[in-house]
Design a protein around this nucleic acid. Structure first.
Lengths: 211, 211
DNA sequence: CTGTAACAGTAACAAAAGTTACGGATGCTA
DNA sequence: TAGCATCCGTAACTTTTGTTACTGTTACAG
């Protein structure tokens, strides 16, 4: 039994299922920046995140992007799942935000386990629930909030996932994730610095007084 | 066996499940405008839509709204489901768009059937998938499109669900659904009329040349 | 028939966000 | 160390969206 499986999923699944996961899952290591899922791609396996952070994005026809949410260890991507079961193509793009380890589970097994293990069913439904909530939070952001609030939220979120008040990111990166322009982000960041909420440095932003 | 159940769900479920639905489900008739689900409400039953159209919305703290999607007969609300299973409160608001009939299924049964019937499981997963796709479409709208495009999309969608190129709606109604102001909608509608895409009348909009 | 409320058109202005352009700072490498 | 690419700050401007205010029209109730 792989130690990582037990550590991240041991409290969720019964031993028999853990054993199946261990026997069938294939570990995949990826580097920061690697593309895990392309928009439009057919998927034959769903990834369980063992370690690292994965960024999930929505793309429009022109290749413009909007970040939806991050995934952490112990989580899986409901989108993938949704596409797997429907045997349709992926509606999202996923990129490794940090070096990460994934456990790949073939679709057939994933479906088989839905009938066989209640704990698996609960896990999958929980995942759906969580992702739906994240997507709704994204909607709240873009529908009800202005760019300055969205930016603050983004910084807080990033800081949380990296567990560091110093965020290593360029203004252009943020602009891509929030689907706006670099100039707008620079402008708003400067305003935040002037009110002493953050400290700006080349390639990094230090959160000072965020809530 | 209720005729409506067989008509809308007969092709999806095996006879045994249909019988259970018939025995356990409670029919509920609601009028246009009735609130079916409040944001923050605890839910103990999930609704299967038998007839009519239901509008699903997202609310922010200040009571501002954004329309997410419509539900039709044969569909159910994944959000409700998500909240039921997680035993958390509703994150959305649902209002009857037209007079509608619902079949209410208690949560316990819904969960029991997940293990018992593959067709039910598939139905629930399909629902999730569909709602997720709708929510993503909403994100596309507000993230990548300008208000004039969103408005057109809204009109097309409404026309589709009512199966009528004449839409009975006030500018203020549209403004609420798209979370903007009446003046903005009036302005854009006027522009659409000037380019002969639509014809405006008091309380109604006739689609002329959409796509 | 009249008063009232809801609805729609429009102007004028304000705020937010997007765009273009340029210049300086930084750091890498040839 | 000279050249080059990336990053960031900022100004000036445009476009889009939001806001306020006022008007005329329509429908309906009394």
């Amino acid at each position: 039994m792989l130690e990582e499986i037990k550590k991240n999923y041991g409290h969720l699944f019964e031993d028999e299922l853990l054993q199946e996961i261990n026997d069938i899952g294939v570990i995949k290591h990826v580097n920061s920046g690697d593309e895990l899922i392309r928009t439009g791609q057919y998927l034959s396996a769903m990834p369980l995140l063992i370690d690292g952070v994965v960024k999930v994005m929505r793309e429009d026809e022109d290749g413009f992007e909007l970040m939806l949410y991050f995934l952490e260890k112990g989580e899986t991507c409901a989108m993938t799942l949704s596409c797997c079961t429907g045997s349709s193509v992926s509606e999202i793009r996923a990129v490794a935000e940090t070096d990460s380890s994934l456990l790949m589970i073939p679709v057939e097994k994933m479906e088989e386990w839905l009938g066989k293990y209640k704990s698996w069913r609960n896990f999958i439904f929980d995942s759906y629930h969580q992702r739906l909530m994240e997507v709704l939070a994204t909607i709240d952001s873009i529908a009800f909030k202005k760019m300055d609030e969205r930016l603050l939220e983004y910084l807080k979120n990033k800081s949380k996932y990296y567990n560091d008040s110093e965020i290593k990111v360029t203004h252009q990166d943020i602009a891509f994730d929030l689907h706006t322009s670099r100039v707008v982000i620079s402008r708003l960041l400067k305003r935040l610095e002037k009110t002493n909420r953050i400290k700006l440095n080349r390639n990094s932003i230090k959160l000072i007084d965020i809530d």
